[in-house]
Design a protein around this nucleic acid. Sequence first.
DNA 1: TATAAAATTGTAAACGATTACAACGAAATA
DNA 2: TATTTCGTTGTAATCGTTTACAATTTTATA
Lengths: 329, 329
Amino acid sequence: MANIQQVAKQAGVSVATVSRVLNGQSTVTAKTRIKVEDAIKKLNYEPSLLGRNLRNSESRILLILIPKIANPFYLDIINGIETAALSQNYNILLCETDSNPERENIYFDLVRKKMADGIISMDPAVNIDTLTELAERHAIIQCSEYSEDSGIPYVTIDNEEAAYRAVKHLIKIGHENIALINTDEKYLYARQRKAGYRKALEEQNIPINEDNIYYTQQLGFEYGQHAMKKILGSKNRPTAVFAVSDLLAIGALKEINSYGLSVPDDIAVVGFDKIDFSNMTNPTLTTIAQPMHRMGTIAAEMLIDKIKGADVESIILDHELVIRESTSG
Amino acid sequence: MANIQQVAKQAGVSVATVSRVLNGQSTVTAKTRIKVEDAIKKLNYEPSLLGRNLRNSESRILLILIPKIANPFYLDIINGIETAALSQNYNILLCETDSNPERENIYFDLVRKKMADGIISMDPAVNIDTLTELAERHAIIQCSEYSEDSGIPYVTIDNEEAAYRAVKHLIKIGHENIALINTDEKYLYARQRKAGYRKALEEQNIPINEDNIYYTQQLGFEYGQHAMKKILGSKNRPTAVFAVSDLLAIGALKEINSYGLSVPDDIAVVGFDKIDFSNMTNPTLTTIAQPMHRMGTIAAEMLIDKIKGADVESIILDHELVIRESTSG
DNA sequence: TATAAAATTGTAAACGATTACAACGAAATA
DNA sequence: TATTTCGTTGTAATCGTTTACAATTTTATA
């Protein structure tokens, strides 16, 4: 396959001139430009990004760290990132860590070894120490899940406020005995959403019953089912459930249905994330919508700015409570 | 950041020796190896993949072309590809084409420009002419969706046989008036699955009613809802529905529920793909399971073999009918 | 027309690795 | 001890670009 030397020879110019044509520099005469373009066409030449990237000391690849591709929560964010990245001539490498440190390290190595120019981390289980250390020499942005201490810029929503609104909505439509399906509190969002839950209850002087708070190990459907099973078997059965993810909520929905109870008449349910499927369940799910696509584009833009050497500030985006059938007869 | 020259200097050896240590070559004395390793540690050296890749004329990146990340069908396949790729030191670039030729071309350019070593195409809407042309000079594998004419090796399942079994199952449990929700017949799998549908009916001498075949533009949930709405309004309402994707089937499920009918008592439903969500609906969905993870690993292995210059043969994998609640009271 | 200034093009050195080949020293053999 | 052989290490070319800087040509000015 042809290289730039051969094109130069064919066109009767120097490699520098070919390179200038390639990069659209204006200092080239129309006549020579045409000569070069003809040669390129004739030889079917495609400039090698391997050469260019080495010379420019960049890969134009962005790493996206997520725990599970299968989690639909990330889809729109990824889409947003991709759109922003492509528009600035970057490509994205989607990295599923499976919350496995070994895999994580494979991907970290990619940026250490210059095969990626930066990282957008969305993995709550990321090794934050390694990430922080990496951030000293490389461009990194946290998206959705973050650690304040790390000093790494982030884009996210106000989880506490969002949870607060969700629970307040349940109270407003008459519920007092409200269960919370939460995940492990090692995750910041879990702590924040629980804080919102407490705040809403306390504000209305509803006593908080710790037995009403259920913890799951992961965010998946089965975990929601399992938690709901326990809730249904509890002594003083709650009339409403707030789950910190849609998948948990959908699992809960299914369990309630199987149990022979009806949503929202017997038990109201609220989820979190507004994944596509939250609209496909029966009944449709009331949930918190995050501006995911926007979060993605902003994260990508922040990262690219950072790669260029700019200082970037963390951003907190708005959210929205979407009321659907699971909380309104 | 340190490069190989500096490491060589620090260790008091030549760059060749450092390179040999880096690549684990056995011709290096234990003593010098230690010297080099010490220097590497001291300088915090990480070999640049940009340099290595240029020299080796490879990128160690595989492109995966899919129409929509949001389609859960691809998840397990992607996972399989990733596992196989990582184990051979390749990374994957997930490319959502959105069935948009422009985007497609961005990604094709990546392999033309050597930033990717090969492509696994899963996009039914891919421009097969361009793909075929590209396959002359680059390694390409088709996965799941394919074109026989292109001459590009593929890995897939027997769609006709799978559809045949699905419909045969419906007939066996007593249905004769069976609707088909299909997509545009420009897609090979749509034609194949329809053929399977016909075959099952013809085999039992059930006349085929073309009015019972519904076409959707895409595979999404809403399209299933919409098709089902038409089916429910038809004169001689079918007692069973076979949809060529789970998302279509789930849309149909929801529509039937909303209409006040019950699945499977009034209408039985069968989907295709066994996506995660097919188990979360109420009732759970009878569907065709494809060995997706395996399909992914095989596709990746085929591609890597092809990159290495080997000849690879197309493969057809087994499938399985998974009977769940939507076809069994 | 001669000269200065501006625009265009070319030369050659990077970027950071790998590797054929040459050179060297130590061990083996005579 | 002299010679051969083998195992280690070094030298320098190479992969394919981009870009300072130098050299050349063109245009503007006197």
